[in-house]
Design a protein around this nucleic acid. Structure first.
Lengths: 158, 158
DNA sequence: CTGTATTTTGAGAATCAGAATCAATATCAA
DNA sequence: TTGATATTGATTCTGATTCTCAAAATACAG
């Protein structure tokens, strides 16, 4: 999804933010934005390899990190820290708030939302005299259908 | 809480696990267990400083990490990764499963449980063809009562 | 268009939590 | 007590991420 779709809006968003903050629109930033919008979620390292492969231009890993963090500030991305130690950058531009279901076997990540759960969370917070800013809900388990699990693992998307 | 209370049961639990796995009950392991049971949650570094202060014995940081992980295997502790990058070891021996409510202002951590939320989680997982192993739910926000928030911050417990 | 001030880049060094190494030491079971 | 085995602590290593800084790119005033 989002193969040839126009990036006008996204680039405009980035450009706007940059201008507003007296920052510069560089080729690297555009390349990274473009690649990032193409995926659902990705690590800095993965994105680095992805871009290096199509060596359209030299690109430092530090730049990837810097730009990914920039995109998070703009609101296009969001950092996630699942069980491991590396940061996953989630492309949330076209998504509503959502929680995650993670397969321990094949690392599949499913996004879901549950207004019912959110409601209960608010209730819980109120009971303890808290005002909520945000939350994190991650469900860990495994796919019931082991074959699908394996198939997904093999899919190019990984 | 749990000041002079006997550690018989806990030491027995540890001893049992060690024997079963042909491991050894060392002074360090006992010291760490004892210190760990005294707190609700703590980082390896904090526990290290805590024990070094009462320099009853020399103790390497590596040993703290190793033993803390051992306690997690036994089930006395559980790792938590809140927003930061360091691991918090949660003493769960006398606790049921619980989730966390975290104040962004004063770092207060409140533990709670909600069977209703758990039920909805199971339902959600089933809907996506998943069997759940465990989950993580963290609510971030701030105490409504800023004064209490500050007071808690100052309390010796921190 | 051009010069210049300013920001960004890339390569590698720095960090930082945590894990691995390994010789010296402690534990345990006979 | 002994000897096999596990553990310790000091240190080094690792891997992800950030920092540094000279060189390059960009924006913008003229």
């Amino acid at each position: 999804m989002l193969k040839g779709s126009s990036l006008y809006k996204e680039v405009a968003l980035l450009k706007n933010y940059l201008t507003k903050n007296r920052l510069k629109l560089t080729q690297q930033r555009e390349t990274i934005l473009e690649a990032f919008l193409r995926v659902d979620h990705i690590t800095a390292e993965e994105l680095y390899r992805e871009i290096s492969k199509k060596k359209r231009q030299r690109m430092g890993l530090a730049t990837i990190y810097r730009t990914l963090n920039l995109l998070c500030e703009i609101g296009i991305g969001q950092q996630r820290h699942f069980d491991e130690n590396r940061t996953i950058f989630d492309n949330v531009l076209h998504k509503k708030h959502h929680d995650h279901l993670i397969c321990n076997k094949c690392d599949k990540i499913i996004e879901f939302e549950s207004p019912a759960i959110e409601r209960l969370q608010e209730e819980m917070a109120a009971r303890h005299g808290f005002t909520l800013n945000n939350h994190r809900l991650e469900l860990y388990g495994h796919c019931l259908d082991w074959k699908k699990c394996r198939d997904w693992q093999k899919s190019a998307d990984r």
